[in-house]
């Protein structure tokens, strides 16, 4: 019972933090399950993919209702992210767990440093009222989309950190639309690799249940808390947590843990 509640609470925390800081849950869930609960990293990635689908589907519905997401652009790009996700899902079962831990440590370190320096793409442009903007550089963006899919499948993350800058900076899509569209795409990307994980025994149903429920509740709670919390303080705390997590993952990668 206690472990179930702890997993649920961990999922809630990941959902709240993810929602407040604009991150997918995967970045938090994989370390939570591996470092906190001792799950093998590949099982943690499988559970994380399920959680990422929860947050994507729940929020994408809202974004579509508000007509913030660009469905056509999302579907064209997700064709390529889904392809990358299937490839990544297959590769994940060929790689040693220590390599996955090493890749995760690098990813967390990158996010911690970029969050610490505040170099996330800023809202320099606003979506025009009539929603008209010209999508540029679709060809190069599809290559980036394949990369986002592979990364998502290997590490159990949504890949918004790749997709949003890709759409905003390369394709000229307004940040708000890029964020909403990325959210929509994450569901298909994660489900393409989750199928591979499911059929190869990489999803633990017992662990996935409470964690996914927690993430669902946490994301809803986070969206309501957004305007009451000082995100700058949260960001500093979070960078510290990420640096510690990167250290622990690096230790796993070199076999010291």
């Amino acid at each position: 019972m206690e472990v179930g509640l702890l997993l649920l609470a961990g999922g809630v925390a990941a959902g709240v933090f993810g929602s407040l800081l604009g991150l997918g849950g995967g970045l938090l869930i994989v370390p939570l399950l591996t470092i906190g609960f001792g799950l093998p990293i590949r099982d943690a990635v499988g559970v994380s993919l399920v959680c990422v689908i929860v947050t994507s589907s729940a929020s994408a519905g809202v974004f579509l209702e508000r007509r913030q997401a660009n469905l056509r652009l999302g579907m064209i790009l997700e064709l390529f992210t889904a392809f990358g996700a299937v490839v990544g899902g297959v590769v994940a079962f060929l790689l040693d767990e220590r390599i996955l831990a090493g890749l995760f440590a690098i990813l967390i370190l990158y996010v911690a440093v970029s969050m610490g320096r505040g170099i996330r793409p800023r809202a320099t442009s606003r979506p025009p009222e009539d929603g008209s903007y010209e999508v540029k550089h679709l060809g190069p963006a599809t290559i980036g989309a394949v990369g986002a899919g592979v990364t998502s499948a290997l590490l159990g993350i949504g890949g918004g950190r790749v997709k949003v800058p890709l759409m905003h900076l390369l394709m000229g899509v307004p940040l708000r639309v890029a964020t909403a569209t990325s959210n929509l795409m994450i569901g298909i990307t994660a489900s393409a690799s989750a199928v591979v994980y499911l059929l190869r025994g990489g999803i633990d149903a017992n662990a996935a249940g409470p964690t996914a429920i927690g993430v669902f509740l946490g994301a809803r709670l986070g969206s309501r808390l957004g305007h009451r919390v000082d995100v700058r303080v949260l960001r500093v705390l979070f960078v510290a947590v990420l640096l510690y997590t990167a250290f622990e993952m690096a230790r796993r990668a070199i076999g010291a843990s």
Binding site: G4, S57, E65, G187, A208, G209, P210
Partner: peptide, 28 residues
Amino acid sequence: LEGTIARLLTAGTYGSIALLLAGTALLL
């Protein structure tokens, strides 16, 4: 079409979470 897809995503998520909730309660 976008409204239909939005409702489908919401219904799918809530229905699946309800099943996970039942499964987790039974597991405990």
